[in-house]
Simulated assay, not measured.
Amino acid sequence: MTIEVNLQQGVLVLTLARPEKKNALSQQMYRQLVSALEQAQADPQVRVVLFQGSNDCFSAGNDLADFLGGGALNAEHPTVQFLQKLATFPKPMVAAVSGLAIGIGTTMLLHCDLVYACSPCRFQLPFTQLGLCPEAGSSLLLPQLIGLQRASAMLLLSEAVSAEQALQMGMVTELVEQAALLEYALNKAIKLAALPADAVQTARALMRQPASVSTAIQAELQQFERLLAGPDCQQAVRLFLQKK
Rank of each mutant, 00 (worst) to 15 (best):
T2R: 15
T2G: 14
T2V: 03
I3M: 05
I3T: 02
N6I: 08
L7C: 04
L7T: 00
Q8G: 09
Q9T: 04
V11I: 13
V11F: 15
T15I: 02
A17E: 05
A17V: 01
A17F: 05
R31M: 07
L33H: 04
V34W: 08
Q39S: 06
A40K: 00
Q41F: 01
A42E: 03
A42Y: 05
F51Y: 04
G53F: 02
S54T: 01
S54I: 05
N55C: 10
C57K: 03
C57T: 11
N62I: 14
A65F: 07
G70Q: 04
N74M: 09
H77E: 09
V80K: 07
V80G: 06
F82L: 08
L83W: 03
K85Q: 06
A87H: 08
P90F: 00
M93N: 07
A95G: 06
G99K: 04
G99Y: 02
T106F: 05
T107M: 05
M108T: 11
M108V: 09
M108L: 09
C112W: 13
C118V: 09
C118E: 15
S119W: 10
S119I: 12
L125N: 14
L125G: 13
F127W: 13
Q129L: 15
Q129Y: 13
G131K: 12
G137I: 14
L140E: 11
L142M: 06
L142H: 02
P143C: 15
L156K: 00
L156Q: 00
L157I: 01
L157C: 01
S158L: 03
V161G: 01
Q165M: 02
Q165V: 02
A166R: 04
L167V: 05
V172L: 05
V172Y: 06
E174R: 08
Q178T: 08
L186C: 07
K188E: 14
K188V: 14
K191E: 13
L195C: 07
D198H: 15
D198P: 12
Q209R: 15
S214T: 12
I217R: 15
L221C: 12
Q222R: 10
Q222W: 11
Q222V: 10
F224T: 10
R226K: 07
L228D: 11
D232L: 12
D232K: 00
C233Y: 13
Q234A: 06
Q234T: 08
Q235I: 10
A236P: 11
A236N: 11
A236M: 06
A236Y: 08
V237T: 08
V237I: 08
V237L: 09
L239W: 06
L241T: 15
K243W: 07
K244M: 07
